[in-house]
């Protein structure tokens, strides 16, 4: 069995899991953890879409 994910799916999954872990280990209260996890996920999304557009525009 082999899982075949696209670039987008793989990066989304990785961003999701790492955001959860960063939120859990970095902050002290549950509310702060939730907000920080969402913030990290947002940053990942911004980076993914930003870099994707940059590469698309760079390649023409």
């Amino acid at each position: 069995m082999k899982l075949s994910l696209t670039h987008f799916e793989a990066t989304i999954l990785f961003a999701l899991v790492i955001s959860v872990v960063l939120g859990i280990v970095t902050k002290k209260t549950d509310k702060e953890r939730l907000y920080y996890g969402l913030y990290c996920f947002g940053c990942f999304m911004g980076t993914i879409f930003g870099l994707a557009w940059l590469m698309k525009l760079g390649h023409g």
């Binding site: 899982l3 075949s4 994910l5 999954l13 990785f14 899991v17 859990i24 280990v25």
Partner: peptide, 19 residues
């Protein structure tokens, strides 16, 4: 926290193996 961390590491590891 332990359960979430274990789940996150396990999920990432399993996805790595499946890929």
């Amino acid at each position: 926290r332990g359960a979430i961390l274990m789940g996150s590491v396990l999920l990432t590891f399993l996805l790595g193996l499946l890929m």
